[in-house]
Amino acid sequence: MAQRISMPAGILARTVLFAALWWLITQGRADAWLVGVPAVALAVFASERLSSGALPRLSLIGLFGFLSLFLRESLSGGIDVARRTLEPKLRIAPGFSSYRLRIQDPRARVLLINCIGLLPGTLAADLDGDFAELHLLDADNNPDPQIRQLEQAIARLFNVPLETNDD
């Protein structure tokens, strides 16, 4: 039941995407296209040069799942850290831990690494091969279950498999 929106690849798709963004940023002002046309052209050029291959094929259902998890975790991450900063006695026990990434797709990994920093109490400090080094605000809590959940949501979003063998 994998419902997919296939993000159209290539220069045309990128042009449409960046032109739409420009239109949105300038609220549709006609004279802004004087700057907008070169800006869109440069953006298309830069993104063609920098990105690895075609635009990813995202799953629509996966997107809803990811967004709802992302919003929930942002909320609890923010509330958690605000509570820790405002309590009279700082309740933190910082430390590091290591997490083995199951996801292989490089773009999905970038998203995961960035999102880990928004989960309650975790921050991805470094990536060494398949291992992400995490900084924990409270090293007494095991962060792996919540990261695993996020990783699964991202795998569904990108329609990529998760390596399943646990060791």
């Binding site: 942002s74 923010g78 920093g117 921050l123």
Partner: peptide, 9 residues
């Protein structure tokens, strides 16, 4: 941690 999470929210 404090900056990224609190500012995001």
């Amino acid at each position: 941690h404090a900056l990224t999470k609190a500012d995001n929210l």
